[in-house]
């Protein structure tokens, strides 16, 4: 029977693994997606900690808009690098 503590421990481990991938990987695309995954697992952790408002805000802003802004800037940089080369 899964108590909430076991779910919280699993979420904490998932957050740390994804954060390590985001900080260490050489490719930028993998890093950005791993940062979005950290935000997603943190949102579920907020729900386990009885904070539904914070969970909704983190899911909409951290995992949605932040990742999209990163990809827009990365796309612009790649397009300019192709124009120059």
């Amino acid at each position: 029977m899964m108590t909430l503590k076991i779910i919280a421990i699993l979420l904490g481990l998932a957050i740390l693994v994804m954060a390590f991938i985001a900080a260490e990987n050489k490719k930028l695309v993998v890093s950005i997606i791993a940062a979005g995954a950290v935000s997603l697992f943190a949102s579920v952790l907020y729900l386990v900690l009885e904070a539904p408002d914070v969970a909704m805000t983190e899911a909409a802003i951290g995992s949605g808009l932040s990742t999209i802004i990163f990809f827009y800037v990365l796309n612009k940089i790649k397009k300019e690098r192709k124009d120059h080369a």
């Binding site: 909704m56 909409a60 802003i61 808009l65």
Partner: peptide, 17 residues
């Protein structure tokens, strides 16, 4: 219910995206 101005604004911005 859980929600409010900041969450709703972020959802509207996602629609625009």
């Amino acid at each position: 219910t859980p929600g409010g101005g900041f969450q709703g604004g972020a959802i509207v911005a996602s629609g625009l995206v």
